[in-house]
Amino acid sequence: MSAELSRRAGHYAAAVAERLLEADLPVTGIHSCGPWRDTDGEYLDVEAGISFTQAFQDQYGGGDCSLHWAATSGWCLYTAMGQDRYLSGVRWPQAGPLPEPRLVTAFVGAFRLDPAKCGSIEQPYYRQEGQDFPFLLDSLAPYLPAQPCVFEEPQIRFAELHRRAYEKRVHRALVSGTSDSLTHLYLRQGELTALLHLLEYAESTNPIALNRLLAADLSARAGQPPEAAETHKRALQEADHRRRQEP
């Protein structure tokens, strides 16, 4: 039962992460675990979590800033420095043990606007630790994937959601408007080369045409006058072509 609780909690975290990605939040991963004991032998309940990029975490004092879900208390967003695990800046939305993903996304949005006034510092308790696991299994069932044979494991499901979300972001940015003004950004040759390496790596992990074409566009206009931006824009044309094909 512990493994199945962990799996279902992971799918719940993936469903929440999907909403966060749709809101353009920089989610990097999910995790979950079933009932377990920590190094001190203390019994702990089912948990899950969602992580963000370091740049996102740095906006709130640096250190660690993540979403944590406890099957006894629901979600919280915590900030922590050093060895302090997640109790230094924790905020609870008081939305029940299994709030809908859209409510968790709204909570994160409110936290970003005003961390001090978002939610509560008081941890709620909606169920007793270590109890009613069959009921918890049933409560998590609605968040299992519609295609269980394809996305049986939460990490595989999240990886696909993550890929699609960033592909949409790149696509949307490239077709944001044909009248986009040119921005003046001076790069050292080494910085441009590093960026091209990152795009090449992105293509190797997510082989879509936009990665390759964007790298080619940037390479072609390096050292060229501003007019080169109009001459070399195959990634923009590909993104526009995809936009026109959308239903």
Rank of each mutant, 00 (worst) to 15 (best):
R112D: 07
R112M: 15
L113P: 00
L113V: 13
D114V: 10
D114C: 14
A116W: 03
A116M: 09
A116F: 04
G119Q: 02
G119R: 00
G119W: 01
E122N: 06
P124L: 05
Y125Q: 14
R127M: 04
G130T: 08
G130Q: 08
G130F: 05
Q131G: 00
D132M: 00
D132T: 00
F133S: 06
P134I: 05
L136K: 00
L136W: 01
L137I: 07
D138N: 06
D138T: 08
D138P: 02
D138A: 13
S139W: 03
L140K: 05
L140D: 10
P142C: 06
P142T: 07
L144C: 12
P145N: 02
P145G: 02
P145Y: 00
A146C: 07
A146W: 04
Q147G: 02
P148A: 15
P148M: 12
C149T: 14
C149L: 12
C149E: 12
V150M: 09
E152L: 14
E153N: 07
E153V: 11
P154W: 00
I156H: 04
I156R: 11
R157F: 08
R157V: 01
R157A: 11
R157G: 02
E160K: 09
E160P: 03
L161M: 14
L161V: 04
R164K: 13
A165T: 01
Y166W: 15
E167A: 09
E167Q: 12
K168E: 12
V170C: 06
H171P: 00
R172I: 02
R172V: 08
V175C: 11
V175S: 06
S176R: 10
G177A: 11
G177F: 01
D180W: 05
D180Y: 03
D180T: 13
L182E: 05
H184K: 11
H184T: 07
L185D: 13
Y186H: 11
L187E: 00
L187P: 00
Q189I: 08
L192E: 04
L192H: 06
L192Y: 06
L192S: 05
T193H: 11
L195V: 09
L196S: 12
L196H: 10
H197L: 13
L198C: 06
L198V: 03
L198Q: 09
L199M: 14
L199S: 09
E200H: 14
A202C: 12
E203I: 01
E203D: 13
S204Y: 04
P207A: 15
A209F: 06
L210H: 02
N211Q: 10
R212V: 14
R212L: 13
L214V: 04
L214G: 00
D217G: 07
S219F: 04
A220T: 07
R221G: 05
A222I: 03
